[in-house]
């Protein structure tokens, strides 16, 4: 691939992910894809569309319907020279693989003093906002982020989806790659192949001076919309897209929070013992002297994910974000 091949295209996040997989498979014969329905069907979200046809059955294949087996087999293949990329069909369907992920995927390098590395990617279509029925809409990032040894990323744009997935596949360690389902069809002009900052780098999506919204994955567009509305009301909100939950980019986040002195974390997951809680805690520890108000969280309620007709009550929306911003002790 030369720079001459680079072309600007409007593509959805789903297409960007598909292209990232295709380019990674072309670049490295050790990259193999497998999971449920990823072969002929191309995945229920079509992220692996056309890859079996292009690369053959040995490179992109369907497995029996058993997530622990899928992740466990990926561990063995990674031990033996491959770079597996496995798909968990939905967030809540990944739970049967939980033991494999926490006991083996996350620990193998440590257990073996670095002798056995597991360069593998676990792709998880995640979170809500698509009218999905129960067990299809969980925000499960905290389980993974709490487990040392895993990298955990969640893109919010097609360009980041491409660059982060390429980085995840190239990474020497396992990456849990969270794909916000409701953003699969969001579009952006993307120039490919693209390279971007590696895993562990947040980005300021919108500059502002009054308060900072910290978000990742599906909450980023909500934060951006809230900032747009706030601007119309005379308040300048900055938006940071974390992109990577582990490692966490304290530097970018703290610089942004210090520059505004006020912050709100926006995340879909239930708030108790969540990634949002961790962000508030660590940012407060580091930036306390710059803060004019406690950092607020706008998260999901601490309830099982609601049925489709009620999910809009659960999802952090623009109004809830702006209410939290209003609460940041402006009148002192």
């Amino acid at each position: 691939m030369t720079v001459l091949d680079a072309e600007m295209r409007t593509m959805s996040m789903a297409q960007a992910l598909n292209q990232a997989l295709r380019d990674a498979m072309a670049a490295d014969p050790a990259v193999v894809l497998f999971g449920e329905d990823v072969g002929a069907l191309g995945g229920v979200f079509r992220i692996t569309d056309g890859l079996t046809a292009e690369f053959g059955e040995n490179r992109c294949f369907d497995t029996p319907l058993a997530e622990s087996g899928i992740v466990g087999m990926a561990v063995g293949m990674a031990m033996n020279g491959m770079r597996p990329v496995v798909e968990m069909q939905f967030d809540a369907f990944a739970y049967p693989a939980f033991e494999q992920i926490v006991s083996h995927v996350a620990k193998m390098r440590n257990r073996t003093r670095g002798r056995v590395a597991l360069p593998m990617v676990i792709r998880v279509p995640y979170a809500g906002g698509i009218g999905g029925v129960e067990h299809h809409c969980d925000s499960s990032e905290a389980y993974y982020a709490h487990t040392p040894g895993l990298h955990v990323v969640a893109p919010s744009t097609p360009a980041d989806a491409y660059t982060l997935l390429r980085a995840a596949i190239d990474a020497p360690d396992p990456v849990v790659f969270l794909e916000p389902k409701k953003l699969y069809w969001s579009k952006q002009e993307v120039t490919l192949p693209a390279s971007g900052p590696g895993i562990g780098t947040a980005v300021v999506r919108r500059h502002g001076t009054d308060a900072t919204l910290l978000a990742y994955g599906p909450a980023v567009p909500v934060a951006l919309e809230a900032a747009e509305v706030a601007a119309g009301e005379g308040r300048s909100l900055q938006v940071v897209d974390l992109r990577s939950i582990v490692p966490f980019d304290d530097e970018t986040v703290c610089a942004a929070v210090r520059s505004t002195g006020r912050a709100v974390v926006v995340a879909e997951a239930a708030g108790f013992a969540s990634v949002a809680s961790e962000i508030v805690a660590r940012t407060t520890e580091r930036c306390f002297s710059s803060l004019a108000a406690p950092i607020r969280r706008v998260s999901g309620f601490d309830i099982p994910y609601p049925p489709p007709k009620l999910e809009h009550f659960q999802l952090p929306g623009v109004d809830r974000v702006l209410d939290a911003v209003d609460d940041l002790q402006w009148e002192q």
Binding site: V32, N58, S68, G69, V71, G72, M73, A74, V75, G76, M77, A78, M79, N80, G81, M82, P84, E99, Q100, S103, H104, M108, R111, T112, V116
Partner: peptide, 23 residues
């Protein structure tokens, strides 16, 4: 492979090692 303490969890790994070799 490293000794497996959680029962049977190493068996899918064995399948993966074998499948990679076979490929």
């Amino acid at each position: 492979a490293p000794h497996a303490t959680p029962l049977a969890t190493q068996l899918p790994h064995a399948v993966g090692v074998a499948h990679a070799a076979r490929l």
